[in-house]
Design a protein around this nucleic acid. Structure first.
Lengths: 224, 224, 224, 224
DNA sequence: CATGAATGAGGATTCATTCAT
DNA sequence: CATGAATGAATCCTCATTCAT
């Protein structure tokens, strides 16, 4: 299931893999998975073709490394963004914000994921879908907390989570047009947070106001 | 700019092109543009490889025909859905609904557009982007009418139009998960119409209520 | 062995064959036999592809028609140029001159013969070689007459005939350069007739002088 | 302009190129450029198809390598045949002889040049024409020296050079017939050297006699 | 560990030929 | 007789992968 390598030194593996991951993201984004050659990736990474095959067993592995990159970022950064936060609304805001900004910093990978996931073997596709579901669960969990606390009107948490995810990924997918209309901050507020803000209960709305006046929640001025 | 053919009889061209378009959508969706062979498309269309090249000059042309299909549907059906409607909110509702349902009936093409647009030559990409902008303008126009009538609170019409478009396309893109959570009708109401309903002004909200009681606007019960 | 046709009306056949012959010469000269398509020839001849196959059975037949064209010209025109001439040297001069000028009027076919003969099936190649030999014999015969009359020093008549033939064909083959250096008339005198003039015996030289002063032989002023 | 390769080691390039050149000459001569497949050439060279494309970028490149082969031979061997020779007539004789024998040793390439030059892209055709002109100039130079020394009667050196060239190439072009009539040595004497011997001045004729009796010039016994 | 030369399977495209109209 | 739409075999070229150095 995981990418395997011939070389044994684990530090070297880690270093080479990162080289190949970044090279893969660049090259596949520029040329697409099928048009890009393994040689293209090797050159971008500054190594020889032969070396590539010492660290991955397949061209598809290179794609998997690239697509997996952003997922790893989510799983590392969202939990750390939530660490120490207690208020459900603050946590939902933080998770959403973090998720959106990680996506925005990795536009190429987001686009690549939409374009090239189908190019992977079923086994890899399944794995990525599973990981995506787990990522979404990080947001869904925060939504559930807000529902439990009565801050949101009753709604399907999975659907709301998906709406947030879709809106966040769309910043990358439609960036060529959206960036002409709004800034990232505006977009996050009016197109991403707006999704759940529209579903705040009375209680939720009051809590938001308090959090804002206590300085515990920045932003949302225009929409909440 | 347009796909050209060697055969001269225009009726025959139209017929064959449609065959190839539908075959292209199926095959490219199943296998992806690069993995699919022209022979695959020919077989799916029930013709010979050679015949394909009498009606398109290129494998890329087949992809363009496929991707262009849904755009043609939008440009034919949305205006006809709006015909005779006068109230701005009714029109916005109709345009959005129509747009969403056309996308939902062509899930494969929507997905294909995201996956394979980059596989086209720049010239075709430009053409498709242009056509997409024109499609969006159909919705944007309705939004603007609502803004002019004071039914929506001030907002950027392009951004709102994009949010609707994104939500509608996402039904196809994330269908594998969304369909587990909601029906299409629910999704249209809670994820697509919800985008603009959340921005209704007092006046807009009142008008909606009236239209509903007059039977001029069906749906939106749960969110407006 | 001969090109056969489906159509029966012999006049029509003759007319169509000539159309195709001329079209073939043009198209094959411009594009080469392999790059030219049967459709190209059909268009050049102003007919449909299907029609071509009513008058020839093969693409190769078209080439054969083209290459055979110049041979037919030789076999028609050289004998008629010799008709009524009696003096061996006058006859040799006339045959050579006629041969050279027919070649010069059909440069494209000469070039085509060198380039594309090998593209024919063995059976056609044999036929053409045979016809070429017969053509050469027309000149060789005149040389033999001159040898018998003692006008040329002993020499192999076949070799001399070939030298004349080669020189004549070279006007077409190297025309791009030769035409920069000399006119056709100069070339015929200095490069073609020169071949046999250099082999004139004393007797032959005297006879030439007499023929010239009698006005029975024009040209050769500069070399004989 | 020149054939380029992906492989970097220049010795390997040289070796492989020579393999491909010789294979190309054989295969293209046997089958013609268009009928021959790249695979045919690869097999003849004892390598794989893929390897071919590491050393040439095109099927046409293979043809260019083949056609260029004889030109390289001329440019290497004629100057070395002239090295150390001083007498203009000896030099002309040597250049002509060398040129004729190189052509005779590369009959296949000579024929190929006539048949397939047009199959090359214009850029290559121009290059070959240029090189042919330069080759001819090697002979033309010797003719000019003889003219300057008064050994030949006034004549256009370019034309005489072309006549020699044509006669020499014709040994290959018409070999199927000429070889039945004469040996190469006879042909060189009676059909090639004969061209310029016929134009010797009195002075030239005397010099030839002297060179022959001094043993500085072998051959021409029968014609000078 | 790293290199890059060699392999050969695979696919887009062309075009001679046929045949129904 | 004439047309031109349809066929499908044939070939150039690319590139993932291997392996000797």
């Amino acid at each position: 299931m995981n990418v395997t390598s011939i070389v044994e030194n684990p530090l070297l593996i880690e270093k080479r893999r990162m080289q190949l991951t970044l090279a893969g993201i660049n090259v596949f984004s520029r040329l697409g998975f099928h048009k890009a050659t393994v040689k293209d990736v090797a050159i971008e990474a500054g190594v020889s073709v032969g070396l590539v095959y010492q660290y991955v067993s397949d061209k598809q592995d290179l794609l998997f490394l690239a697509l997996n990159h952003i997922i790893r970022r989510h799983h590392e950064e969202i939990p750390s963004a939530l660490a120490g936060l207690e208020d459900p609304l603050v946590r939902l805001h933080a998770a959403t914000d973090s998720y959106a900004r990680i996506n925005a910093s990795n536009k190429a990978v987001v686009v690549l994921t939409y374009r090239e996931t189908k190019s992977l073997k079923p086994e890899f596709i399944r794995k990525l879908k599973q990981l995506e579901i787990e990522t979404n669960r990080l947001i869904e969990g925060c939504i559930q907390e807000c529902l439990d606390a009565g801050f949101l009107v009753p709604t399907k948490p999975e659907l709301l989570a998906y709406r947030v995810v879709i809106a966040a990924q769309s910043w990358s997918l439609k960036n060529w047009q959206l960036a002409k209309i709004v800034t990232l901050d505006e977009y996050i507020e009016h197109a991403i947070h707006a999704c759940w803000v529209a579903l705040l209960s009375q209680k939720g709305r009051r809590r938001i106001a308090k959090l804002q006046s206590d300085g515990l929640l920045k932003g949302l001025a225009a929409i909440a």
